[in-house]
């Protein structure tokens, strides 16, 4: 009984995490400019990582694998947002201004990654 419940919870977490990755991917492709894109992409770094790893930890139960998964999750949660921050900071320093335009504008070519 408890195993079934764990299974259901972990699969729900994995599915929601997968959906977050998908949303992040779509956002990275569809959003109008650089800053909104990394905003979408950072969803994969944080929310999706958290959900998918908790889901996998529930799958693996109490074992060494869980500990390793936890360590990897911690690592990803530390590095992902840092990388996003560094990316945004580098873009700002190199002169890409965050402006509230909506895409089909003169800044079109600036937004290419």
């Amino acid at each position: 009984m408890i195993e079934l419940a764990l299974d259901v919870v972990s699969w729900v977490l994995l599915a929601v995490g997968g959906a977050c990755v998908l949303i992040g991917g779509i956002g990275g492709l569809r959003l109008p400019n650089f800053y909104t894109r990394i905003h979408a992409a950072s969803l994969t770094d944080t929310m999706a990582t958290l959900l998918i790893f908790v889901g996998m930890m529930l799958q693996s139960g109490l074992s060494l694998a869980t500990l390793k998964l936890f360590a990897i999750m911690l690592f990803l949660l530390l590095t992902g947002p840092t990388a996003t921050y560094a990316l945004a900071n580098a873009a700002l320093l190199s002169g890409l201004k965050p402006e509230g335009d909506t895409g089909q504008s003169k800044h079109g070519e600036n937004t290419q990654p």
Binding site: T82, Y85, A86
Partner: peptide, 15 residues
């Protein structure tokens, strides 16, 4: 001038 990468990086290097 990049404080956050530096702090996180320092934390990670020993590991």
């Amino acid at each position: 001038h990049h404080l956050i990468p530096q702090v996180v990086g320092r934390l990670l290097v020993p590991f």
